Simulated scan of single mutants.
Amino acid sequence: MGSKNKLKRFAENETFPNVIQPKRVEVMEGFHLKGKWAGHFGNGNPIVLELGCGKGEYTVGLAKRNPKKNFIGIDIKGARFWRGAKTALEDNVTNAAFLRTQIELIDFMFEENEVSEIWITFPDPQIKYKRTKHRLTNKIFLNKYRTILKPMGTVHLKTDSEFMHGYTLGLLHGLGCTVIYANHDVYKNEGCPEEVLEIQTFYENQYLDEGKPITYIQFRLTN
Protein backbone atom coordinates (compact mmCIF):
# COMPACT_ATOMS: atom_id res chain seq x y z
CA MET A 1 0.00 0.00 0.00
CA GLY A 2 1.35 3.41 -0.98
CA SER A 3 2.03 6.10 1.59
CA LYS A 4 -0.67 8.32 0.07
CA ASN A 5 -3.30 5.61 0.53
CA LYS A 6 -2.19 5.07 4.12
CA LEU A 7 -2.41 8.76 4.91
CA LYS A 8 -5.86 8.93 3.31
CA ARG A 9 -7.06 6.00 5.39
CA PHE A 10 -5.57 7.43 8.59
CA ALA A 11 -7.43 10.67 7.90
CA GLU A 12 -10.70 8.86 7.26
CA ASN A 13 -10.33 6.84 10.45
CA GLU A 14 -10.25 10.10 12.37
CA THR A 15 -13.75 10.88 11.09
CA PHE A 16 -15.26 7.43 11.69
CA PRO A 17 -17.50 7.24 14.80
CA ASN A 18 -16.79 3.51 15.13
CA VAL A 19 -12.99 3.97 15.42
CA ILE A 20 -11.26 4.69 18.75
CA GLN A 21 -7.58 5.67 18.63
CA PRO A 22 -6.29 6.57 22.10
CA LYS A 23 -2.73 7.70 22.69
CA ARG A 24 -0.61 5.36 24.79
CA VAL A 25 -0.39 7.86 27.63
CA GLU A 26 -4.20 8.04 27.76
CA VAL A 27 -4.37 4.27 28.09
CA MET A 28 -1.72 4.03 30.79
CA GLU A 29 -3.13 6.87 32.87
CA GLY A 30 -6.72 5.66 32.78
CA PHE A 31 -8.56 4.84 29.58
CA HIS A 32 -11.96 6.53 29.57
CA LEU A 33 -13.84 3.53 28.15
CA LYS A 34 -12.40 0.92 30.53
CA GLY A 35 -15.40 -0.61 32.27
CA LYS A 36 -17.71 1.67 30.29
CA TRP A 37 -17.92 0.05 26.86
CA ALA A 38 -21.66 -0.43 27.33
CA GLY A 39 -21.92 3.36 27.21
CA HIS A 40 -20.06 3.51 23.91
CA PHE A 41 -22.49 1.05 22.29
CA GLY A 42 -25.56 2.36 24.11
CA ASN A 43 -26.51 -1.06 25.48
CA GLY A 44 -25.37 -3.72 27.92
CA ASN A 45 -24.98 -6.51 25.37
CA PRO A 46 -22.02 -8.94 25.65
CA ILE A 47 -18.69 -7.65 24.36
CA VAL A 48 -16.61 -9.74 21.95
CA LEU A 49 -13.06 -8.87 20.84
CA GLU A 50 -11.14 -9.78 17.70
CA LEU A 51 -7.42 -9.44 18.41
CA GLY A 52 -5.14 -8.59 15.50
CA CYS A 53 -8.28 -8.01 13.45
CA GLY A 54 -6.49 -7.08 10.20
CA LYS A 55 -9.07 -5.96 7.67
CA GLY A 56 -11.87 -6.63 10.17
CA GLU A 57 -13.64 -9.40 8.27
CA TYR A 58 -14.42 -11.36 11.42
CA THR A 59 -15.41 -8.32 13.45
CA VAL A 60 -17.95 -7.21 10.85
CA GLY A 61 -19.05 -10.74 9.90
CA LEU A 62 -19.72 -11.75 13.50
CA ALA A 63 -21.48 -8.45 14.22
CA LYS A 64 -23.87 -9.01 11.31
CA ARG A 65 -24.67 -12.52 12.53
CA ASN A 66 -25.05 -11.56 16.19
CA PRO A 67 -26.94 -8.26 16.58
CA LYS A 68 -27.38 -8.87 20.33
CA LYS A 69 -23.61 -8.72 20.90
CA ASN A 70 -21.08 -5.89 20.52
CA PHE A 71 -17.85 -6.53 18.62
CA ILE A 72 -14.54 -4.68 18.84
CA GLY A 73 -11.71 -5.31 16.38
CA ILE A 74 -8.30 -4.49 17.83
CA ASP A 75 -5.17 -3.84 15.78
CA ILE A 76 -2.27 -1.39 15.80
CA LYS A 77 -2.46 -1.00 12.01
CA GLY A 78 -5.20 1.52 11.39
CA ALA A 79 -4.73 1.59 7.63
CA ARG A 80 -5.58 -2.10 7.59
CA PHE A 81 -8.73 -2.10 9.72
CA TRP A 82 -9.95 0.98 7.84
CA ARG A 83 -11.64 -1.45 5.45
CA GLY A 84 -13.67 -3.12 8.19
CA ALA A 85 -14.62 0.17 9.82
CA LYS A 86 -15.77 1.61 6.50
CA THR A 87 -17.76 -1.51 5.62
CA ALA A 88 -19.49 -1.45 9.01
CA LEU A 89 -20.55 2.16 8.45
CA GLU A 90 -21.67 1.52 4.88
CA ASP A 91 -23.72 -1.51 5.95
CA ASN A 92 -25.08 0.20 9.09
CA VAL A 93 -23.52 -2.39 11.40
CA THR A 94 -23.84 -0.40 14.63
CA ASN A 95 -22.60 -3.17 16.94
CA ALA A 96 -19.06 -3.17 15.50
CA ALA A 97 -16.21 -0.87 16.51
CA PHE A 98 -12.45 -0.75 15.97
CA LEU A 99 -9.78 0.07 18.54
CA ARG A 100 -6.26 1.04 17.45
CA THR A 101 -3.85 -0.07 20.14
CA GLN A 102 -1.21 -2.64 21.03
CA ILE A 103 -2.71 -5.90 22.25
CA GLU A 104 -0.32 -6.08 25.20
CA LEU A 105 -2.27 -3.12 26.64
CA ILE A 106 -5.57 -4.96 26.54
CA ASP A 107 -5.93 -5.16 30.32
CA PHE A 108 -5.67 -1.35 30.43
CA MET A 109 -8.55 -1.06 27.96
CA PHE A 110 -11.08 -3.41 29.54
CA GLU A 111 -12.20 -3.95 33.11
CA GLU A 112 -12.17 -7.32 34.88
CA ASN A 113 -15.00 -9.55 33.65
CA GLU A 114 -16.03 -7.02 30.98
CA VAL A 115 -15.50 -9.28 27.94
CA SER A 116 -17.54 -12.36 26.99
CA GLU A 117 -15.49 -13.77 24.09
CA ILE A 118 -12.18 -13.29 22.33
CA TRP A 119 -11.39 -14.25 18.74
CA ILE A 120 -7.80 -14.58 17.52
CA THR A 121 -7.84 -15.05 13.75
CA PHE A 122 -4.70 -15.95 11.80
CA PRO A 123 -2.13 -14.35 14.08
CA ASP A 124 1.56 -14.37 13.25
CA PRO A 125 2.71 -17.66 14.89
CA GLN A 126 6.05 -16.08 15.85
CA ILE A 127 7.78 -19.44 15.41
CA LYS A 128 11.27 -18.40 16.50
CA TYR A 129 11.87 -18.91 20.22
CA LYS A 130 13.04 -15.33 20.74
CA ARG A 131 9.65 -14.19 19.39
CA THR A 132 7.66 -16.21 21.95
CA LYS A 133 6.80 -13.05 23.90
CA HIS A 134 4.88 -11.77 20.86
CA ARG A 135 2.83 -14.97 20.41
CA LEU A 136 -0.80 -14.08 21.13
CA THR A 137 -1.46 -17.31 23.01
CA ASN A 138 1.63 -17.27 25.22
CA LYS A 139 1.16 -17.52 28.99
CA ILE A 140 1.44 -13.76 29.58
CA PHE A 141 -1.27 -12.97 27.03
CA LEU A 142 -3.51 -15.77 28.31
CA ASN A 143 -3.30 -14.30 31.81
CA LYS A 144 -4.32 -10.89 30.43
CA TYR A 145 -7.29 -12.48 28.68
CA ARG A 146 -8.25 -14.32 31.86
CA THR A 147 -8.38 -10.99 33.70
CA ILE A 148 -10.80 -9.27 31.33
CA LEU A 149 -12.95 -12.30 30.45
CA LYS A 150 -16.07 -13.27 32.34
CA PRO A 151 -15.65 -16.50 34.36
CA MET A 152 -17.13 -18.67 31.60
CA GLY A 153 -15.82 -16.52 28.75
CA THR A 154 -14.47 -18.29 25.70
CA VAL A 155 -11.48 -17.80 23.41
CA HIS A 156 -11.40 -18.85 19.74
CA LEU A 157 -8.16 -19.43 17.84
CA LYS A 158 -8.35 -19.91 14.08
CA THR A 159 -5.05 -20.36 12.27
CA ASP A 160 -3.32 -22.00 9.34
CA SER A 161 -0.29 -22.69 11.54
CA GLU A 162 -0.03 -26.26 12.86
CA PHE A 163 2.75 -24.96 15.09
CA MET A 164 0.47 -22.33 16.66
CA HIS A 165 -2.33 -24.87 17.03
CA GLY A 166 -0.13 -27.47 18.73
CA TYR A 167 1.71 -24.93 20.88
CA THR A 168 -1.56 -23.49 22.15
CA LEU A 169 -3.14 -26.88 22.86
CA GLY A 170 -0.08 -27.97 24.81
CA LEU A 171 -0.02 -24.78 26.83
CA LEU A 172 -3.74 -24.99 27.61
CA HIS A 173 -3.45 -28.55 28.83
CA GLY A 174 -0.44 -27.64 30.96
CA LEU A 175 -2.33 -24.75 32.56
CA GLY A 176 -5.40 -26.88 33.27
CA CYS A 177 -7.66 -24.86 30.96
CA THR A 178 -10.81 -26.26 29.36
CA VAL A 179 -10.56 -27.11 25.68
CA ILE A 180 -14.14 -27.09 24.41
CA TYR A 181 -13.40 -28.02 20.81
CA ALA A 182 -10.29 -28.55 18.68
CA ASN A 183 -10.03 -29.33 14.98
CA HIS A 184 -6.95 -29.77 12.77
CA ASP A 185 -8.80 -29.20 9.48
CA VAL A 186 -12.13 -27.41 9.81
CA TYR A 187 -13.14 -27.88 6.16
CA LYS A 188 -12.70 -31.66 6.20
CA ASN A 189 -14.00 -32.58 9.67
CA GLU A 190 -17.59 -32.20 10.81
CA GLY A 191 -18.85 -30.45 13.91
CA CYS A 192 -17.13 -27.06 13.56
CA PRO A 193 -19.26 -23.99 14.45
CA GLU A 194 -20.82 -22.34 11.39
CA GLU A 195 -19.21 -18.95 12.02
CA VAL A 196 -15.79 -20.60 11.76
CA LEU A 197 -16.62 -21.91 8.31
CA GLU A 198 -18.78 -19.13 6.90
CA ILE A 199 -16.53 -16.14 7.67
CA GLN A 200 -13.25 -16.16 5.77
CA THR A 201 -10.55 -13.53 6.06
CA PHE A 202 -8.39 -12.16 3.26
CA TYR A 203 -5.45 -14.25 4.49
CA GLU A 204 -7.54 -17.38 4.97
CA ASN A 205 -8.57 -17.31 1.32
CA GLN A 206 -4.90 -17.14 0.37
CA TYR A 207 -4.07 -20.11 2.61
CA LEU A 208 -6.96 -22.15 1.19
CA ASP A 209 -5.74 -21.44 -2.34
CA GLU A 210 -2.36 -22.82 -1.26
CA GLY A 211 -4.03 -25.97 0.08
CA LYS A 212 -3.22 -25.29 3.71
CA PRO A 213 -5.52 -26.84 6.34
CA ILE A 214 -7.23 -24.37 8.67
CA THR A 215 -7.21 -25.24 12.36
CA TYR A 216 -9.46 -24.07 15.19
CA ILE A 217 -9.57 -24.24 18.98
CA GLN A 218 -12.31 -23.02 21.29
CA PHE A 219 -11.34 -22.89 24.96
CA ARG A 220 -11.95 -21.39 28.38
CA LEU A 221 -9.18 -20.18 30.66
CA THR A 222 -10.84 -21.89 33.61
CA ASN A 223 -11.06 -25.59 34.45
Rank of each mutant, 00 (worst) to 15 (best):
E90F: 06
P151W: 05
F98L: 07
Y129F: 12
T101R: 04
I148W: 06
A97G: 10
R146Q: 14
F108K: 15
V93H: 07
L149P: 06
I106M: 13
H134A: 12
V93C: 10
R83W: 11
F98T: 04
L105E: 13
M152N: 15
K144V: 00
I103Q: 00
K133M: 07
A97H: 03
I103S: 02
V115K: 04
F141P: 05
L89I: 10
M109I: 14
G78P: 02
V93R: 06
R100D: 07
A96G: 05
M109H: 13
I103A: 11
D75Q: 06
D75V: 01
K130N: 14
E104G: 09
I103D: 01
A85S: 12
K144Y: 13
F141V: 11
T132W: 12
E112G: 00
R80W: 11
T154K: 14
I120D: 07
R80Q: 12
I72L: 11
D91L: 13
F81N: 08
E112S: 11
K133S: 10
L142M: 14
Y145K: 07
E114G: 02
R100I: 03
R131S: 13
F122A: 08
T132L: 13
A97D: 01
A79W: 13
F110T: 05
R131P: 00
K77I: 02
I76A: 14
D91F: 01
F81Q: 06
K144N: 12
G84C: 11
G78V: 03
D75G: 07
F122V: 03
I127Y: 10
